[in-house]
């Protein structure tokens, strides 16, 4: 049976680093959930303002979009910790333990590399927008570095959780791919 086990978190054992990362990821998860709730509230407020008060709604759409994007990016480490990012472990399942261990290290390393790339260029993009004082081209005119900040933060925290997951497998605190 393949990944996506329901609400089973990655194991941390007694390793202080793993526990610290787990705590940070959980905090990120709370932030993410809060942003989703805020998006619900703002959308309902927008419908109320438009339908009941028949007034202008200029900032809500944009605010909601940025909240959902931020919720997604900042929620990444938490979902990684919960093993909620769906995967196909057809090959790992068919491998003997040692080969499975090696494959787990390889896929972890590849994930860490790609997320590092996303973090680096995400930071650059954020910095570019900050440096040039970009705003969105709407009446509200949000300073774009604010929503873009979710890129470096989200990928940075995801990177941390991925490293923690690799450490957990290397130290034996967790099984490769979480498979028994």
């Amino acid at each position: 049976m393949a990944g996506h086990s329901s609400a089973v978190a990655a194991r941390t054992g007694n390793n202080p680093f793993l526990r610290a990362v787990a705590a940070i990821s959980t905090l990120a998860g709370w932030c993410s959930a809060t942003m989703i709730v805020a998006a619900v509230a703002i959308t309902c407020q927008m419908i109320f303002v438009r339908w009941v008060l028949n007034a202008s709604t200029v900032w809500q759409t944009e605010a909601v979009i940025y909240l959902v994007i931020s919720a997604t990016l900042i929620g990444l480490p938490y979902v990684q910790r919960l093993r909620g990012h769906v995967n196909v472990d057809l090959i790992p399942l068919s491998l003997p333990p040692r080969a499975r261990f090696a494959l787990a290290i390889l896929t972890s390393a590849l994930s860490i590399v790609i997320i590092s790339i996303m973090l680096w260029y995400g930071y650059e993009y954020w910095h570019f927008a900050w440096d040039r004082g970009w705003r969105s081209d709407t009446v509200w005119g949000v300073r774009l570095w604010i929503p873009y900040l979710a890129l470096p933060i989200g990928f940075g925290l995801l990177l941390l959780q991925l490293v923690a997951d690799l450490v957990a497998v290397l130290t034996g605190a967790d099984k490769p791919f979480g498979l028994e």
Binding site: A55, S56, T57, V58, D137, T138, V139
Partner: peptide, 17 residues
């Protein structure tokens, strides 16, 4: 953006989509 500002000035309710 400029049209939204002008139309709001005319008393329209602006819906962005």
């Amino acid at each position: 953006k400029s049209f939204e500002q002008m139309l709001a000035g005319a008393g329209a309710s602006i819906a962005s989509m």
